[in-house]
Design a binder for these strands. Structure first.
Lengths: 261, 261
DNA sequence: CCTGGTGTAAAAATCCTGTGAAAGCAGGGA
DNA sequence: TCCCTGCTTTCACAGGATTTTTACACCAGG
C-alpha cells in the first residue's frame, strides 16, 4: 500500500493569496482539500472526516483559544496545524499545549506548510493504525478495510490482497473512470510496463467473485480504450423479468443501457 | 489532563548552554532526560526505549540525513525533533519528509522546544486505571494482564513475555486483521526488518499452546499476504456444535480502544 | 475488412506461510 | 567465573496460494 494515503485537509484562512497557492500544491499532491473563509462549528468538522486542519487563528476571532481547544478535544485523531501571523512564544506554547500539533508563522513557504501537514498526519495515522471509518457500502457490498475484505451480507468475497486493494481503489472513486496506468500505479506502487495485462486479469477475477455473490448487481464497467469505472447499479431485467429467457448474443439492449450512460 | 506520562527524552547536541537550560526545564517537568554530545548508533537508541529525540544535525556530521532517515525508519513511534542552527526551507522540508516530526530553528525559547516535544510525543492517552474490568475473555481463554498470562479454566498457558504481549495485542482487536509490520512494530517496539519471520514463529508457538489447552477452538487466523486476525471460534466438526455461534464482534466497535468521546 | 483493445483461460513463475531445528543471548545458580 | 536453562532469533525447506505471463478468441471502431 502507498505510504502516503491521500490526505483530507481543510484550510480555514481568509488570506486569499496564501490559500490559492496552497490549494495548487495540495491538488498537485492529490490531496482532497477544502478552503473555508471563516470558522465553522466543530461538529461540522467532525462530519468531514478530515486528516488535517490548517487554521489561521486570526479568522477565529475572540474565541480562537476556546475553538482550538474544542476542536482538538473533539477530534483526537485530527492533525491540527496553526499558521498565524506574528505570534509570541507564549502564544505558540499555549497553542501546542492545547493540543495543536504544529504552529507555523507567516510568512512561510507553502512547501514547508505541506511538509509539516504531512508530518503531522503521518504521526497521527501511526498512533491510530486501526480503521476509523465504518465499512464502505456500495450496492450489496460492504468493504471493510479493517479486514482487508469485502462482504455481501456476511459472506466474504474471499478476495486476495491485490484484489481487495484494486476493489478498494475503484470503490473510493465511484462513478469515476480510472485509466489502467493510474490504477496500476496506485495499486502496484510503480509504473505499469507496456503491454501488462495484470489490471485486466484482476478486474476479471473481481467481476467473477462479485457476480458469484451479488449476481443482480453490476459493479465494474469497462470504458473502451480508457479503463474502468466502479458504479454499482442493479441490473434491470432481473427485478422486472425474473423468468430469464435464454440469454442469446442479442442481449445488446441491456448492455447498452449502462455502457453509454 | 495535560500532565503526560513521563517522557523519556534524549538530546543530541553539543551546545552546552542550550542543553543545560533545557535539562533544567525537563527535569522540572519530571522527564527522564539524557544528553549526548555526539551521535550514537541507531541500535542503541532502540534499546533506550525513548519517547522523543531532540537533535541538532550539526553534531551528526556528513551523514546527518542518512542518520535521521535511519532513526526515523527504525523507530516510527519515536518523536524526532530537529533543532538546528540556520536552515533553509529546502532542508526543513527534506527533514520533515524523511520522517522528522518537527524542525525548530535556533535561537529558540526552551519553553517552546519543550512544548513541541510534548506535542510530538502526545499520543496514546490510554489511561487505563480501570483495570480492564477483570480478565479479558475470549472463547475459553482468560487473558489476565495483571499476571502477564492467559488461562484456560485455571490452567496457565505458560506464555513467555513476548508470547503474551503478542496474544494481548491480537486479542485487543478481535476480528481485526493486523499486518505483520504493525504487529512487530507494536510488540517489539521498532520497525520490522525485511524478511524477519519472528512474528510467524511466535504465532506458531501461540497456536501450539492454545491448541494444547483449548483444542476445540480456533483463535488465530491467517490472512495470506496481510497478517493475522484474532477471532475465537469453535471448531465445527466437534461432535456437538457448542451453542456459541455468533462471535461476530464487528457490529459493535472495539470497546476499550479510543471511543473516549 | 482490418486493427488494436478486451475477455478468458490456463500455464509458469513468484511469493508466502508453516514448520522444525540450530544458533545466539541473557539470567540464575553452583 | 562457568555452566545450565529457557527464551528469542535466525535459517532452510516444503507445500500452497497468489501473481504474472502467455495465448487465443472476440468485439469495437475506423
Amino acid at each position: 500500500m502507498n505510504s502516503q494515503q491521500t490526505i483530507r485537509l481543510t484550510v480555514i484562512d481568509d488570506d486569499s493569496g496564501f490559500v490559492t497557492v496552497l490549494a495548487k500544491r495540495t491538488e498537485a499532491a492529490g490531496w482532497q482539500q477544502r478552503t473555508l473563509g471563516s470558522a465553522i462549528p466543530p461538529e461540522e468538522l467532525v462530519a468531514m472526516k478530515l486528516n488535517a486542519l490548517l487554521v489561521d487563528p486570526s479568522v477565529l476571532g475572540e474565541d480562537a483559544w476556546a475553538y482550538l481547544e474544542r476542536v482538538c478535544g473533539m477530534l483526537p485523531d485530527l492533525g491540527v496545524v496553526v499558521c498565524s501571523g506574528r505570534s509570541t512564544v507564549a502564544q505558540r506554547v499555549r497553542g501546542l499545549r492545547l493540543g495543536v500539533d504544529d504552529w507555523i508563522t507567516k510568512p512561510c513557504h507553502p512547501e514547508e506548510v505541506i511538509a509539516r501537514i504531512e508530518a503531522v498526519s503521518r504521526r497521527r495515522r501511526r498512533s491510530r493504525p486501526q480503521a476509523e471509518a465504518g465499512p464502505v457500502r456500495a450496492g450489496e457490498l460492504a468493504i471493510r478495510s479493517d479486514r482487508f475484505q469485502a462482504f455481501v451480507g456476511d459472506v466474504s468475497l474471499d478476495l486476495t490482497r491485490r484484489e481487495f486493494e484494486l476493489l478498494q481503489l475503484l470503490a473510493d472513486a465511484p462513478g469515476q473512470v480510472l485509466e489502467r496506468e493510474a490504477i496500476y500505479q496506485r495499486v502496484w506502487g510503480y509504473a505499469m510496463a507496456h503491454g501488462d495485462r495484470s489490471v485486466d486479469v484482476f478486474i476479471r477475477k473481481l467481476r467473477q467473485k462479485l457476480e458469484k455473490l451479488s449476481p443482480s448487481w453490476s459493479y465494474i464497467h469497462t470504458h473502451f480504450g480508457v479503463g474502468y469505472r466502479f458504479d454499482p447499479e442493479p441490473i434491470d431485467g432481473v427485478a422486472i423479468a425474473p423468468p430469464e429467457r435464454h440469454p442469446d448474443v442479442d442481449s445488446a439492449p441491456v448492455q447498452d443501457a449502462f455502457t453509454t450512460a
